[in-house]
Write a protein that binds this DNA or RNA. Sequence first.
DNA 1: GTGGATGCAATGCAGTTGCATTGCATAGGG
DNA 2: CCCTATGCAATGCAACTGCATTGCATCCAC
Lengths: 197, 197
Amino acid sequence: MIEVMPKKVDHQERRTLIADALMRVAADQGLEAVSLRHVAAEAGVSAGMVQHYFRTKDEMMAFALAVIRERSQIRVTEALARLGPDPSPRLLLRTMIAALLPLAERTRDDGRVALAFLAYTAVRPAAAPSLREDTVRLVGFIASVLPGRDADAAAAGLLALMEGLGVYLLGGQYTAEQALRALDAHLDLLFGSSTGA
Amino acid sequence: MIEVMPKKVDHQERRTLIADALMRVAADQGLEAVSLRHVAAEAGVSAGMVQHYFRTKDEMMAFALAVIRERSQIRVTEALARLGPDPSPRLLLRTMIAALLPLAERTRDDGRVALAFLAYTAVRPAAAPSLREDTVRLVGFIASVLPGRDADAAAAGLLALMEGLGVYLLGGQYTAEQALRALDAHLDLLFGSSTGA
DNA sequence: GTGGATGCAATGCAGTTGCATTGCATAGGG
DNA sequence: CCCTATGCAATGCAACTGCATTGCATCCAC
């Protein structure tokens, strides 16, 4: 490696460990409960160590956000990989969106944190560009597999539908079944079919 | 009046004034920046007065949330009133949804605060029931004017689309034009037409 | 008047925040 | 064998938090 490294610990691993703790705290007490000491306690390390790996709180937040984005990517990739080769566009989209929705209890925590960050970046536009990038890429991809004219608007709509379903799932307004029914109904419209899932 | 009232000020008006300040603070610094003193300063009153009108911070938050919900109601009602009598279902829905979206700069602040509260209640389910109520009512109303079978799922989808558009508008992912195009495209699908707005 | 309720300001307090600083243990490289 | 870079703990600090308390000015009922 290039560095001189008279060290022994894996820097990146430690940072991820801390980011995990931050996400746990944020998931059940909100982003506003995230503090150096709080995160440190949750991670079972000293507050000083957190400061050692993140010189500032914002740096820690930014890293956590990056972790979340990365994990979403991975979830999608895995879900798509579990499909056979050459799935139908409709199944592809349904699988991808279902993978991103906070449907299971385990993924709800991630969703809560993501939602908190959404509100966070709506006010502190510092980290917004990266989210924007993700969205643009997703819209482009969805549009590329959608039939019909004006695929861009339809793709934007589908993505927004997903986001809204996610929000309502987290707020308890929709049940998982309702959300999936709404998604399937929308896919029915887009693909002109009337088959369920 | 029923009360003994040896007072002179309008209690409700003061509370609304304070809630306004809270919303201004939340809109451009986030809900986590909301504190008694901060809100008081923004409202141009003493911190003690804020405590006088809201015995606890949570009480103040709850009141602000109620104000937001009420204002949304009003915006919708006004927008619908501006339509003539007997508008087409499609125009009705489009008008209603457009009234709820943070399209203009003025309404973006409200949207930011609403989004913050969404994340807030996703973690503190205390105020969630009232939001749930709103959603159920909206879904019911939308379903009642939608054509086609499975109007419930379609209504849930349309509402989720709206919420997602709102989120993306706030995050800067979508422009107002993109959001409206996506909305219209979706309405096209629902109503089987291909006319624009 | 006078008594009591009310509107509001001011202050105090314990707890928490982000961050800077200091101290020390280790561990390779020279 | 030193010695310098690193990992990490501990402490300190000013700022801030929500809230309780106190004090005073006003105003209405009597």
